[in-house]
Simulated scan of single mutants.
Amino acid sequence: MAVQVEIWTDINCPFCYLGKRRFEEALEAFPHRDDVTVVHRSFELDPTLPRDHSDAVVPYIAEKYGISEAQAAANERGIGAQAEAMGLSYVTEGRDFGSSFDMHRLLHFALEQGRQEQLLDALYAANFGEQRALFGDTERLVEVAVSAGFDEQAVRAVLDDPDAYADAVRADEAEAARLGARGVPFFVLDRKYGVSGAQPPEVFAQALEQAWADHAPKLEIVADAEVCGPDGCAVPQRD
């Protein structure tokens, strides 16, 4: 018996980065953690971006939300403080953003290899923990994948074929829309319970407990008679 947790995320999303760590904290403390299967699903925050697109994060945030660049920079510092409190590296200046489509294709490739988690962690670390540009740079993406232990030739073969795993990415995104996901991170447990956002670990813990309780087989009592229990034994009644 296993509980399946599907997590829709995007590499551009800082709250996906934080949410993954908070979920992992809850999962680590979950008594049945070895019976939980985690699968990461694809979600692009901006699927309209060209694959070679790369731009600075702070001006993008300022324009998107109609705030000043000073406010956007302050928001980044606030997220960075949250990340630091969880032991995560977070560079608040000099990061870029762009199309994550090829990254999602590689994550489906990694899923087939049984090593999706390793690649996702490497991509998050490269994006949020380093000032070097990550998006729109095939060589940089190859470098990150190879550093995570993947074969360079196999990685290049995926990236050189624009159709490789493209249908899998689109299927994940279509499923997210069907399930009502309006943003990420979006966690779905056994296709029964949804958790939206980078919630505190205790919220994830509660969701795991609820999914496990529903997943466990329920015993139906079909016959009943006198029993002995903690308070003693049933006393036979005389006629």
Rank of each mutant, 00 (worst) to 15 (best):
Q4N: 07
G194I: 10
A81G: 08
L27Y: 01
L120A: 05
R22K: 15
A85I: 10
A223F: 06
Q116R: 13
V146D: 00
A205T: 08
V38M: 00
T92V: 15
D214Q: 11
C16Y: 00
R156Q: 07
R182M: 11
H108F: 02
T9Q: 02
V155L: 01
L219A: 13
A145Q: 09
P14W: 00
G114A: 12
S196E: 03
F15W: 15
S54R: 10
W212G: 03
R191H: 15
L189R: 01
P162W: 03
G114T: 12
Q206F: 07
Y65R: 14
F43I: 00
R156W: 04
E63N: 14
K20I: 03
D96T: 11
E44F: 01
A177M: 14
Q4R: 10
E152R: 10
F128C: 06
A211T: 05
L18K: 05
G183C: 12
E143D: 13
V36Y: 03
A174Q: 14
P201H: 08
H108A: 03
G87F: 08
A225C: 09
F23S: 03
F204I: 05
C13M: 03
R95C: 04
S99Y: 07
E6R: 07
Y193D: 03
R170G: 01
R140E: 04
S100Q: 05
D34A: 13
D151L: 08
A81F: 01
G194N: 11
Y193L: 14
R178L: 11
G197V: 05
A29L: 13
V91M: 13
S147K: 14
E202P: 10
G229M: 07
T9L: 01
G232D: 13
F135V: 06
P14E: 06
T138F: 01
Q118I: 02
A171F: 06
A73P: 11
H32L: 10
A171Q: 15
K218V: 10
I221W: 09
S54Y: 01
L18T: 06
S196I: 02
V169M: 10
R77A: 12
E84A: 15
E209R: 11
H215D: 09
A29N: 14
Q131R: 15
V158H: 02
Q210C: 00
P31C: 12
S89I: 01
L18M: 08
R140S: 01
V222A: 12
G98R: 02
E202A: 12
A110Q: 03
F23M: 07
R191K: 15
D102P: 02
T37Y: 00
L134R: 03
L120V: 09
L123Q: 09
F186R: 04
R77W: 02
C16P: 04
D224Y: 09
C233G: 11
D160P: 04
S196M: 05
V188I: 12
D163W: 06
A73G: 14
G183Y: 08
A133W: 05
G229R: 12
V155D: 00
V222S: 14
Q118D: 15
A26R: 03
L18W: 04
F15N: 06
A125D: 12
V195M: 04
A56T: 12
P185T: 06
S89N: 10
Y90V: 04
D55R: 13
V155K: 00
I11Q: 00
D137H: 08
E209M: 05
E220Y: 08
R238A: 15
A2V: 05
A83Y: 02
L141V: 15
D163E: 15
Q153M: 01
L208W: 01
P230E: 11
E117C: 04
